[in-house]
Design a protein around this nucleic acid. Sequence first.
DNA 1: TTTAATTAGGACTTTATTATCTTAATTTAA
DNA 2: TTAAATTAAGATAATAAAGTCCTAATTAAA
Lengths: 134, 134
Amino acid sequence: MLVTRSSEYAIELVLYLVTRPLEDSFAPLNKIAEEISLSFHFLGKIAQILVHAGILKTYRGPNGGVALARQPQDISLFDIVSAIEGDAFLNQCLIRPMRCADDNPCPLHDVWSHIRSDIQDVFLNVSMDSFVKS
Amino acid sequence: MLVTRSSEYAIELVLYLVTRPLEDSFAPLNKIAEEISLSFHFLGKIAQILVHAGILKTYRGPNGGVALARQPQDISLFDIVSAIEGDAFLNQCLIRPMRCADDNPCPLHDVWSHIRSDIQDVFLNVSMDSFVKS
DNA sequence: TTTAATTAGGACTTTATTATCTTAATTTAA
DNA sequence: TTAAATTAAGATAATAAAGTCCTAATTAAA
Ligand code: SF4
Ligand code: SF4
């Protein structure tokens, strides 16, 4: 499993905000939840995490909701996924982490550190402006 | 989380068999469990899955144990991980799978199918002979 | 100033994963 | 032919992830 379900939801949420017309400022979570058919309450949890990560901003009360906190080009897939999964995104090593000493790496070490950094680069290089509705 | 803990264990198990001297035929699970400090019983479950996948073979009774069922060069990281995780390895898409029609893909579709296949290739191309003890 | 619309956050429930335990089935060798 | 060494596999338990529910805190507008 590359990313957890929570990360999938987070990507959907951000994608929703990125692809909607810019003039709308805050979109309420209940409307988003309905449109992407996802539990309103769970979406709320996801949104909170993304707010703490500085990816979304919220506003309470009537006409409130969530909106992007930064420009789409400044939000990468990596930002979203790592906000949700924390350090757990991309296993530090492919076998149980830290069962080794730096001066005595297991045979997987070099292979894995390259794979890992390549995957990370891909996620860093996909930013949300690729998905802005034209 | 790129791979689950079970996959990590499976990789450790195969790596153990790959790096040990070839003359030993079957290695008993209790000895392996002790050497890689992992629950004997859980390791048994993992081994069974790998046996069903044709990666390991086992032999019961005294002097029994597990051994590779094929040559190291014919076992890739992809084989091991996908044996454990099944279709769940590498999310089919980065948002909830199958919420789309082929003729009306979401904006992520092309980006993701490239990322996905690149990652898959990396896992396919790392085979166990890289780790054979010289 | 009251009501309605919203997010915030804690408590709880359900489900999936991981881990353990127990018994059965093989196989070797004494 | 019995005992010991093993894997096989099902049952159960513990933990983590996902999902739901409830109450509080904000904010706007009637
Ligand atoms: S040497 Fe590297 S790959 Fe091996 S266990 Fe340590 S961190 Fe992981
Ligand atoms: S169009 Fe592609 S990326 Fe989008 S939901 Fe469907 S399979 Fe996933």
